[in-house]
């Protein structure tokens, strides 16, 4: 290149210094979006669970942290077993799960049609987006005192917190998914003779379904968070209530056991929704 340039004396580029060379670094584990070997993947996956667990075992076994603050895994397991045998755990878990099903279920029933409306019609967006965009920034937990005044201490106020905490986000996320339906798909449906309702039912909804389930999955996790918060106030059963009670008696082992159960149920919900998503969205794979 340089020699060829030099021959053309008039070419000013001949006087330029050569461009610096950059060496390409070796491929590492942290190469962007590059698949890892199966071995490295396994090590990282196992490690992400094993390392924190090992820390827990070591810290509690050596007595570095007193058992009142950090109970040993064995103690947590035996307390958990005891709670399960007495039937207390099943009642608490079911009470909490039922609240999620009712509160979040209601939120889904309201937010999915509303989101479809907002994503499909500009009128729907203009009418609802401003108010929902505002409401979603009000933390659901801040509504607890108000809801207790309005609805009392019983179930309705807890269901309402779950509803408020999830309905706005799920609406906006659904609307976003629906807005992603390609224009060409809608236009071509009209040219094939579809009427507005048919375009909605046979094109917009089926195309959006996998994305809507994704939104539900994300917000189910949020619902699961809110239910525990809701139960911290004035309950007589439920996993959140169990944690508050255990705290009064300094039963950290019980708190840990309940946290494990909350985690397990949460993961189960997520896996179940993921399976549904895979089945419904096979075409998008």
């Amino acid at each position: 290149m340089k020699a060829a340039l030099a021959e053309r004396a008039a070419d000013v580029r001949a006087a330029w210094p050569p461009l610096p060379r950059r060496t390409r670094p070796q491929r590492t584990v942290l190469a962007i979006r590059t698949p890892l070997s199966r071995r490295t993947t396994t090590i990282l996956t196992v490690g992400s669970l094993a390392v924190p667990f090992a820390c827990w075992v070591v810290l509690s076994a050596t007595g570095a942290v007193p058992a009142t603050f950090l109970p040993s895994p064995g103690a947590v397991l035996s307390v958990g077993w005891e709670m399960a045998r007495s039937g207390e755990l099943a009642v608490d878990a079911w009470t909490t799960t039922r609240r999620v099903l009712e509160g979040f279920g209601l939120a889904v029933v309201v937010s999915v049609p509303l989101g479809i409306l907002m994503g499909t019609f500009h009128a729907g967006q203009a009418a609802f987006e401003p108010v929902i965009g505002l409401l979603r920034y009000l933390p659901a937990s801040a509504f607890i005192p108000l809801l207790i005044i309005w609805l009392g201490l019983g179930e309705p106020s807890k269901i309402a917190i779950l509803f408020i905490g999830t309905v706005f986000f799920n609406t906006l996320m659904t609307a976003d998914v629906v807005r992603g339906v390609p224009r060409a798909l809608i236009d071509v449906s009209y040219t094939l003779g579809a009427h507005r309702g048919e375009v909605l039912r046979k094109v917009v909804v089926p195309h959006s379904l996998p994305g809507i389930i994704d939104a539900i999955r994300v917000n189910a996790a949020a619902a699961w968070n809110f239910v525990v918060v809701a139960e911290l106030v004035n309950s007589t059963a439920g996993l959140g209530y169990r944690i508050v009670r255990a705290q009064r008696f300094l039963q950290t082992d019980k708190i840990f056991a309940v946290l494990v159960v909350i985690g397990v149920i949460g993961v189960t919900i997520d896996v179940a929704l993921r399976l549904v998503r895979t089945r419904v969205g096979r075409w998008a794979a």
């Binding site: 071509v188 094939l192 195309h207």
Partner: peptide
Amino acid sequence: PGPDRGLVFQAGSLYPWRTVERNVAF
């Protein structure tokens, strides 16, 4: 718009969740 004027775009107008025959049958 109506089916008396069938339209074909450059790309990306098939229903991705429908099989070939169900796309044609729409």
